[in-house]
Write a protein that binds this DNA or RNA. Structure first.
Length: 565
RNA sequence: GCGCGAGUAGCUCAGCUGGAUAGAGCGUCGGCCUCCGGAGCCGAAGGUCGUGGGUUCGAAUCCCGCCUCGCGCACCA
């Protein structure tokens, strides 16, 4: 049992002795102010009403009935309106480190989900251009959320959905056609909604290198059609270009993701929903469910029956489907594939779609729960360099790509910076700070803490594997800096499960920074090597524990934990 | 206009799902230090938690109104 579990057990006994109803579950929390002790409980405040007594009186009774020795408590104090503060004796407090050493890399992991399957969909960028910072934030968030859920015992599937069937792909193919035509000396402009980026020119060059320049009259005719808002008559050629462009960009995006260290288990192609007949099937089911109607030549879904603010068109007058129909069909596949939980990580600019997808799933009446899928939406990212904002313009093709950033500041820094703010707030990515090798840079600061701890073992020529909790004098870790560091390390499992539950990796990032600060403080104040044997032993246990937990936290965020820098 | 998000120290942000005198880093001011691993350490000042109400033992946190900013409101994706 960990120290707080012992204390909770002792408190429960005392509460029952005082007359609390059976099933009381005392809540322990860390006081903000360390002067208030190691733990505090508001138990007396919550019991005051049912017992019909004053909170402070209840607190006094509880303390009187508390088995201090069993709880490892050295001092209690009744404070404020009726809080009870506990100070554990140094030994009881630090004994929790034994747990860390015993569990190692598994410290902080639980099995609460017991292998329940969950699908985490993220990035899902259209294959129409390289990944930009916003996708990077999604990649970092999605991967970290996946890691958090794995740590909570979920069987996680990381999934990428390729929108390779819509209008945007059509525009991509047209853009490539135009670039190929331009390269052949035909004068034609990129169409409305097309892609201007340099990367299309490069793809055009490669296309010509691999397939040769297409017949000029076909090219010219197609270019004219595109300029007029139509598609080229040479369907076979157009199709070839479309496939070529998509393949090229998918390959690019794969490289981006690889550089970022993100691996997906499933790439789901929107086009397969059509070829497998799932879109048709979904429409049929929706019609059968009775929530559709025809109006003005279009087929509508009455999404207002399910909380949307207006009804949505499913099939346009021209006979094609709106994007949300394949989206619904896609989410049906998630449900059918056994994912009782599905989490979608998306930019906040997509939040308008969430209500419709959920409404569509409800209208199918196939037993999908109301809040399915869950959405984690994140706000915009802006990038600053030299104190100036780097403008992102998709139209002009000026981009801050994920790969630029990684080349510039390194994968670890990109990950940390994209994760250090909660998704709800806008994020400013300061490239200069991310690149700096100084303690102002949070990533550097945290990794440095880990490296320093490793350094102790290296310099002392001590194999960490030989350090165990056996026979350690726990009360040797009584310095204030030590008590606080120990507290942080023991808080880690609660922190991680909270972050997993709320799908908020930034909590881990903040915890790492704070704990790194405590490591640095401790390190500066107290020596390890050269101390008397019993202190040396205890401090080596602390150093090894701290190093382990820092590494565990970093690994959740996909960041390396270097032994030297 | 409607929906979602944000508004906390001079700046950048936390605030553990309702707890005590609201925290950290940077910056500012004052003082030490040069020690396994690099300018680090100690202390101070700095707040009407956007604003007005409400809920209760207790609110930055929950509810309602208002203000400012961002994003979204297609038979685009």
């Amino acid at each position: 049992m960990t120290p707080d579990e012992l204390l909770r057990a002792a408190l429960t006994k005392a509460a029952i002795a005082v007359g609390a109803p059976a099933g009381v579950a005392p809540v322990l929390e860390r006081p903000r102010d360390p002067a208030h002790g190691d733990w505090a409980t508001n138990l007396a405040l919550t019991l005051a009403k049912p017992l019909g007594k004053k909170p402070r009186d209840v607190a006094a009774e509880l303390v009187a009935h508390l088995d201090l020795a069993a709880a490892g408590v050295s001092a209690t104090e009744i404070a404020g309106p009726g809080f009870i503060n506990f100070r554990l004796d140094a030994g009881a407090h630090a004994r929790g480190l034994a747990d860390i050493l015993a569990q190692g890399a598994a410290y902080g992991r639980t099995d609460v989900a017991q292998g329940k399957p969950v699908n985490v969909e993220f990035v899902s960028a259209n294959p129409t251009g390289p990944l930009h910072v916003g996708h990077g934030r999604q990649a970092a968030l999605g991967d970290a959320i996946s890691a958090l859920l794995e740590g909570a015992g979920y069987a996680v599937t990381r999934e990428f959905y390729y929108n390779d069937a819509g209008v945007q792909i059509e525009n991509l193919a047209k853009s490539l056609w135009v670039r190929v035509a331009q390269a052949a000396g035909i004068e034609v402009a990129i169409p409305e909604g097309g892609y201007n980026g340099e990367y299309i020119k490069e793809i055009a060059e490669r296309y010509v290198a691999e397939h040769g320049t297409p017949p000029l009259d076909a090219l010219r005719a197609g270019a004219q059609a595109i300029a007029g808002g139509a598609r080229p008559a040479d369907v076979a050629l157009f199709d070839a270009m479309r496939r070529f462009a998509v393949a090229a960009l998918r390959a690019e995006q794969d490289l981006d993701l690889k550089a970022f260290g993100v691996q997906f288990d499933v790439y789901y192609l929107e086009s397969s929903l059509y070829t497998d007949g799932l879109v048709e099937e979904t429409v049929g089911l929706l019609q059968k469910g009775g929530h559709t109607f025809e109006d003005d030549g279009a087929l509508w879904l009455r999404t207002t029956d399910f909380g949307d603010d207006k009804d949505r068109v499913m099939r346009k007058r021209d006979g094609t489907y709106t994007y949300f129909v394949p989206d619904v069909a896609y989410h049906v596949t998630k449900w059918r594939r056994g994912f009782t939980r599905a989490i979608n990580v998306q930019g906040a600019d997509h939040h308008g779609t969430t209500a419709r997808v959920r409404a569509g799933l409800q209208a199918l009446e196939v037993g999908v729960p109301t809040g399915y899928p869950e959405y984690v939406l994140h706000q915009m990212v802006t990038v600053t360099r030299g104190g100036e904002e780097v403008k992102i313009s998709k139209r002009a093709g000026s981009y801050v790509t994920v790969r630029d950033l990684i080349d510039d500041v390194g994968r670890d820094a990109v990950r940390y910076f994209l994760l250090m703010r909660k998704g709800d707030s806008q994020l400013v990515f300061d490239v200069d700070l991310a690149r700096s090798q100084s303690e102002e840079n949070p990533v550097y600061y945290i990794q440095m803490a880990h490296a320093r701890l490793s350094g102790i073992f290296r310099v002392g020529e001590i194999d960490p594997a030989t350090i165990t909790a056996d026979g350690v004098q726990w009360d040797a870790l009584g310095e204030e800096a030590e008590r606080e560091l120990v507290s942080s390390l023991l808080d880690y499992p609660r922190l991680v499960s909270g972050a997993a539950e709320s799908l908020e990796p930034h909590r881990v990032a903040a915890w790492l920074l704070e704990t790194a600060r405590q490591v640095h403080l401790w390190y500066h104040k107290h020596h390890v090597l050269g101390e008397p044997e019993h202190i040396l032993r205890a401090r080596l246990v602390l150093a090894k524990s701290a190093r382990q937990v820092l590494a565990n936290g970093l690994s959740l965020l996909g960041i390396s934990a270097p032994d030297r820098m």
